[in-house]
């Protein structure tokens, strides 16, 4: 049944697919993961702070983000961020935000909600005595977080964080709704141009599968390496 298929289309377009498309996808994934973990950790700390108001703000943010479809958030930010930017800096016209910046902001804010739940579980998994020991040695809240609690929470949660990052990697394909040339966007453009839809989407599926499969193997190996000796 593959006799009519022309897989040459892949050979002819691989530079575009990978150097443009995949590079964008991986860059967006990596930056949004780092941004999302940092913001998510701060949100988790707010939520566990025991201070007035902050936990509620964090909780509302997380639940709000998690109840919206990602595509909606992508659209929303793409059209809204220019106006928010205008409002913040008080400019005359909506500020220009590139598709990349817009999607990076979107994914960071969106993923932070999920990462914050992971980091919250991670922080809560550290025995109370660790914080007490850090305080007893004279460490401040931020020193205790930075040197004692978060490094352990992060290590305990690394497998889950990376698994969530693999989901993020797949989700970045949704930026195609903004006509961005991520990997799927690039494959889609070639497919339409050359009329090779089946070959291209089949190939894209194989690539996504391969990347995710290898990544999850690496996660498992990493898990063993970073495990805290107990």
């Amino acid at each position: 049944m593959f006799s009519n298929f022309d897989f040459g289309v892949i050979l002819n377009s691989w530079r575009y697919l990978f150097l443009d498309g995949m590079t964008f996808t991986l860059t967006l994934t990596a930056l949004a993961a780092v941004g999302g973990v940092i913001l998510g950790t701060l949100i988790a700390m707010m939520r566990l702070s025991g201070l007035p108001v902050l936990p509620q703000i964090a909780k509302v943010y997380v639940n709000f983000m998690r109840s919206l479809p990602l595509v909606l958030v992508i659209f929303w930010f793409y059209f809204l961020v220019p106006y928010i930017g205008q409002w913040i800096i008080g400019a005359e016209r909506p500020i220009q935000v590139g598709a990349f910046s817009s999607s990076l902001i979107t994914f960071t804010l969106f993923e932070a909600a999920y990462f914050s739940e992971i980091m919250r579980a991670g922080i809560q998994s550290i025995p109370k005595g660790q914080g007490a020991a850090a305080s007893a040695l004279g460490l401040t809240y931020w020193q205790s977080m930075g040197s004692v609690i978060l490094p352990q929470a992060f290590r305990n949660m690394l497998p889950v964080l990376l698994t969530q990052t693999i989901v993020l990697f797949q989700d970045t394909s949704l930026v195609y709704v903004l006509s961005i040339t991520d990997f799927l966007g690039a494959a889609s453009k070639i497919a339409q141009r050359d009329g090779r839809l089946v070959e291209m989407y089949l190939f894209a599926a194989v690539v996504y599968f391969t990347v995710c499969f290898i990544a999850s193997l690496l996660v498992r190996r990493l898990q063993r390496r970073v495990a805290i000796i107990r």
């Binding site: 005595g129 020991a133 805290i228």
Partner: peptide, 30 residues
């Protein structure tokens, strides 16, 4: 607190740090 030493029932050493780092962390930070 940095002038008041405390020893806990369950030790509460920091498991992600080597013994050397357990001993030097607060000396350096505090």
């Amino acid at each position: 607190r940095s002038r008041v030493g405390m020893v806990f029932q369950h030790f509460e050493l920091f498991p992600h740090l080597s013994i050397t780092d357990n001993l030097s962390l607060a000396q350096r930070k505090v």
